[in-house]
Computed example of a mutant assay.
Amino acid sequence: MGVSDEYVNKAKAELGDLADAGVVMSGNAFSPVLLVKGEPEESGVKLLAGPDGDALRAALGALGYAPEEWAALSVRDAEGFPLVPGTLRLAIATLDPATVIALDAPAASAICEAFADELVELESLEAATLAPGYVVRLLGMRVLALGGFEQSLADAKAKQVMWARLKQVPPLGEPY
């Protein structure tokens, strides 16, 4: 077994542990972008499989990300209950994205709770509270709260605001 096989097996085990704990994820676990959703999906609908997911994938593509360069994570478990902050933190650490995008206020709030010790050290209140539109550096990740992406799809002006916010987190390129 080569090193790459060991890496894949390690990732499968870690992701399996998260799934066993009820963590809801979709997309590519090895991607640089993690989309975090706080609002629950409709019953039986896969995470970001609706119009919001389509719009996000289109926006990421327009920014220059490859179609497979995203993963999604719900701050609610498979039964609909909020994830414990430590579990959310572990899930984000396991996925190890370069960029985390909180799609709505519940997602931003959950991330704030999971990373409270680090966020309290930031200089501005907007950064420390993950105010919508601010890009924050947190443990080597860029974190952006959009503030209601799914609701913005019904309003042309709100969609423009979301696009302006997303343009702040283009692909990093190499070297990182």
Rank of each mutant, 00 (worst) to 15 (best):
A110I: 14
L146N: 01
A62C: 09
A66E: 07
Y134W: 13
A107G: 01
A55Q: 08
G140W: 11
L73P: 07
Y65Q: 01
E68G: 14
V120A: 06
I111K: 01
A62G: 13
F115D: 11
A114R: 01
G64A: 06
A71V: 05
R57K: 11
L166H: 03
K159R: 14
R76K: 11
Y134F: 10
V36A: 03
G27R: 08
Y7H: 14
V8I: 08
S43V: 13
G133I: 09
D54T: 12
V136D: 06
L48Y: 06
E123T: 06
V84Q: 15
L146V: 01
L122E: 12
V169H: 06
A108F: 05
Y176F: 09
P32F: 08
L15Q: 08
P51N: 13
A11G: 02
D52K: 05
G38C: 10
V75S: 06
P170I: 09
D77H: 07
L125K: 09
L172W: 05
L18F: 05
T99R: 12
P51R: 15
L63A: 03
E113M: 07
V120I: 13
F81C: 09
L138K: 15
A11M: 13
D155V: 00
G44R: 11
V135E: 10
P106L: 01
V33L: 04
S152L: 05
A105T: 15
P67W: 04
D54N: 00
L56D: 05
L73Q: 10
G80I: 06
A13F: 10
A105S: 10
L166D: 01
T94K: 00
V169Q: 01
G50F: 04
A116Q: 09
D155C: 06
K157E: 15
A116L: 15
F115M: 13
V24F: 04
R89G: 14
S109I: 11
L73Y: 07
A145V: 11
A19K: 14
V3N: 12
P171L: 08
G80A: 03
L166P: 00
A55K: 03
L63H: 01
V23I: 11
P171A: 03
I111H: 02
A66C: 07
Q160V: 04
V24W: 04
L166M: 07
A131E: 13
T99Y: 05
A59V: 02
G44F: 09
I101K: 07
L172D: 02
A108V: 12
L103E: 00
